[in-house]
């Protein structure tokens, strides 16, 4: 009886979120999945006929009649994955040592630092990216300083390059990497670190054999949380990237808003989702293997 009652309570509690996700997340997703197999309407929208050429246009089985295969889409996809991976690596390198430093601060300074890390969320992303635009442009802050200091003779061309895109994404993603990392570093058992040294392991060995494995959940969590939005990001390349900084998210945006090719945009979206899902499953299964029992 008690069990039955519990499951009723559980169902009641879960109903609102299930309904919400079902209507506003799963349904649109199914619509996009469906659209990706339909043909584009003349002025946007879709024609209700089965049409696999959207994918053919990306992966290469387009016959040249319905659609034309253009390798640029795959290139942009691979570039996006590369940018996202680079963003993960750079945020990780930036945040990992800082997490250790912060976890050793006194209570007061630690809270202040955690507040500072979340401070960017108080300001619109677009505004912050335009600030970067002002910093990076040829007559911007960075170049002015470098020129005045005599470190460069001509302004650096950073804006509208892949460098600017990665820089912007690293900037945006740092808090997402830092917080999970910090949690795992903060809960690291210091006694185990001492035990390792006590048993003769030097600092490098202790790091590789004890500290790194113990903080792996944080590294994996932060990486996934950074990688997923980074792959599909279109705001950063929109503001800071030029033609060479274009990412797959921008393509999707263009297909829906400018080219009015909804089915093709949907197909691109599905590909992003497939890649993200694959990465997620890989990291979960690896984490499970590394974590083992308890």
């Amino acid at each position: 009886m008690a069990l039955r009652r519990q499951s009723v309570v559980l169902a009641v509690l879960l109903a609102p979120v299930t309904l919400f996700l079902g209507v506003f997340f799963l349904l649109p997703l199914l619509i996009i999945a469906l659209f990706s197999f339909l043909s584009p309407g003349l002025y946007g929208g879709v024609e209700w006929t089965f049409y696999h050429w959207n994918y053919g246009r990306i992966f290469g089985w387009a016959d040249g009649v319905n659609e034309i295969f253009e390798p640029i889409y795959l290139k942009i996809l691979i570039r996006s994955l590369g940018f996202a991976a680079l963003t993960v690596v750079l945020t990780l390198i930036l945040c990992y040592p800082v997490a250790f430093w912060v976890s050793r601060l006194s209570e007061r300074w630690r809270l202040l630092f955690l507040f500072l890390i979340t401070l960017p969320f108080f300001c619109s992303l677009i505004v912050r990216l335009y600030a970067w635009l002002l910093i990076l442009k040829p007559t911007g802050l960075l170049n002015t300083i470098l020129l005045r200091a005599g470190l460069v003779s001509a302004p650096l061309e950073i804006l509208y390059t892949p460098t600017a895109v990665v820089l912007g994404m690293v900037y945006v993603m740092v808090p997402f990497m830092f917080l999970p990392l910090y949690v795992s570093v903060d809960t690291l058992d210091r006694a185990q670190v001492e035990a390792s040294q006590d048993l003769g392991a030097n600092r490098v060995q202790t790091f590789l054999k004890v500290i790194l494995p113990q903080t792996l959940p944080g590294i994996a969590g932060g990486s996934v949380i950074v990688f997923i939005p980074a792959v599909g990001n279109f705001v950063v390349p929109d503001v800071l990237g030029g033609a060479k900084g274009l990412m797959i998210g921008n393509l999707v945006e263009q297909q829906f808003l400018s080219a009015r090719n909804w089915p093709f945009g949907s197909a691109l979206s599905m590909i992003i989702m497939a890649v993200v899902l694959a990465v997620l499953m890989l990291s979960v299964s690896r984490a499970r293997r590394a974590g083992g029992h308890a």
Binding site: D189, Q192, A195, D198, G291, G292
Partner: peptide, 11 residues
Amino acid sequence: TVFQSYALFGH
């Protein structure tokens, strides 16, 4: 050393 909390490596 045998530590008070044992400090065994959980992984």
